[in-house]
Design a protein around this nucleic acid. Structure first.
Ligand SMILES: [Zn+2]
Ligand SMILES: [Zn+2]
Ligand SMILES: [Zn+2]
Ligand SMILES: [Zn+2]
Lengths: 135, 135
DNA sequence: CTTGACCTTGGACTATACTCCACCCTTTAT
DNA sequence: ATAAAGGGTGGAGTATAGTCCAAGGTCAAG
């Protein structure tokens, strides 16, 4: 049984983060001492590790919450369910990637049109382009 | 002279948004009526248009604030300054793009390793991979 | 003179992921 | 016995970009 500080240092997060995750349903202490201290099991280190790994590949805490539910109920879930969840996320990431690519192109167009010289920017095409109502 | 509702509908934003932008220094009414109503000049339509255009190419309100300052003081600024501002932003967008690309790759690797079948997910490689401490 | 449209301010709420704080209690060590 | 280390709760603050609401003032028309 680990107290919050022990789990925190084993898992590499702060005590505050653990309490935050608890508030958001990502982890719960197994019990409490009589004085109210949280007591975690050793396997919770892996649970935190799961959370951190999932965060690293771009899942939000909310999505991780859903993933953890998949994990807990994995006897009732199929690989199909899990894979679909990930594939969904890939779609979302792809979409966002497309948007950012468009933004980058717009910025490049803007930048390329500007002379970049040392004269006053009164004639600057960037400032000009932004001032115009485009849609 | 336009009251807030008129400017809002001309510019295609809400009255609340205009007051929000004012609070953040992006726009200020020319005057107020005796009763306290905000009065804007017609050219403020273009100012809002500038803000919206800049938002569309990915600038944050904070950055737009700086851009607007460039615009106002364009006699003292050079094209070089303006271009540099945009080029900076391109760098930031590029970095973010790289991060998201990495995330996408991780997700794809995860997805590809999963059989996607209808059997229980107890053996699922996705769940497995996330549980393992990677770093 | 009253209704309705429009305006004012201030403050609360949304999502995301925490961090930091005050104030207090418990446990451990000297 | 006492001090330090660690734990508890509740609430505020961070950044981003607003939205929504309440309570009240103003203005034109019927
Ligand atoms: Zn130039
Ligand atoms: Zn220029
Ligand atoms: Zn499988
Ligand atoms: Zn699987």
């Amino acid at each position: 049984m680990l107290k919050i500080g022990a789990l925190a240092s084993l898992a590499g997060v702060s005590r505050d983060t653990l309490r935050f995750y608890e508030k958001h349903g990502l982890i719960t202490p197994d019990t409490r001492t009589d004085s109210g201290y949280r007591l975690y099991s050793e396997t919770d280190v892996y649970r935190i590790s799961f959370i951190l790994s999932a965060k690293e590949v771009g899942f939000t805490l909310n999505e991780i919450h859903q993933l953890l539910e998949l994990e807990v109920t994995k006897d009732d879930k199929s690989c199909h369910d899990v894979k679909q969840f990930v594939d969904n996320k890939i779609q979302v990431v792809n979409q966002r990637l497309g948007e950012m690519e468009k933004i980058k192109q717009s910025l490049k167009t803007l930048s390329n049109a500007c002379c970049g010289g040392d004269e006053p920017a009164t004639h600057c095409t960037i400032l000009g382009a932004l001032s115009v109502q485009n849609r």
